[in-house]
């Protein structure tokens, strides 16, 4: 059962990820991103992180990608991009190097921690059937207890970003003479 879920979800994630890169149409790319996010949500459920799965769908699929689509539709860039021309010459070689580097690092990390991954751990506290809310309880304990300062600083960061965006989009209009 778990293997089956893993294979299906992994296929969803990979297909979505490839779709984001390969599809030349921005809207299709955004839709592929949703597929990936859903796959990740399924993975969360399989790992018994139900709350994270719900938040993944509500926040990422439900709000962030909707905003992506909004921008794509409102700015009218919903036509096929020409990927032949390249604005920055260094971009592509740099992307190849960074991509290979990330693959190398992830492989190294997996190889280095093989013992930890392959051994079946029993130390993880998973929510049991008797208490379905233990998930959200654990999360809120660490979020609003142990890491409350980091959490609040992050929220300040978000507010700063919002205020900054409003300021940037607000053109200061030249003062028009009062029309009588």
């Amino acid at each position: 059962m778990e293997l089956f879920v893993f294979v299906v979800a992994a296929a969803m994630i990979l297909a979505g990820a490839i779709g984001v890169v390969v599809r030349s149409h921005p809207v299709h790319a955004a839709l592929s991103l949703i597929l990936t996010l859903f796959g990740v949500a399924v993975m969360f459920v399989a790992q018994e992180a139900h709350f994270l799965a719900a938040v993944q769908v509500i926040v990422y699929a439900g709000a962030i990608v909707v905003l992506f689509l909004f921008v794509i539709m409102l700015l009218g860039v919903d036509r096929t991009e020409d990927i032949k021309t390249e604005p920055f010459k260094v971009q592509r070689p740099l992307a190849v190097i960074v991509g290979l580097g990330v693959i190398g690092l992830v492989t190294a990390a997996v190889v280095a921690s093989r013992d930890v991954v392959s051994s079946r751990g029993s130390g993880l506290v998973t929510p049991d059937m008797a208490d379905p809310d233990s998930n959200i309880r654990q999360l809120s304990r660490s979020l609003f207890g142990d890491y409350v300062v980091a959490f609040e600083v992050t929220s300040i960061l978000l507010v700063v970003a919002v205020v900054g965006t409003v300021l940037l989009t607000r053109r200061v209009k030249p003062v028009v003479k009062e029309a009588s």
Binding site: F51, A53, A54, V55, A61, G62, V66, P127, P132, N135
Partner: peptide, 19 residues
Amino acid sequence: PVGILLLLALSSIAVYGIM
């Protein structure tokens, strides 16, 4: 276990249908 959060998740998916 997510209970009522499923409602919020589904209503955010329903946005896509219309959009």
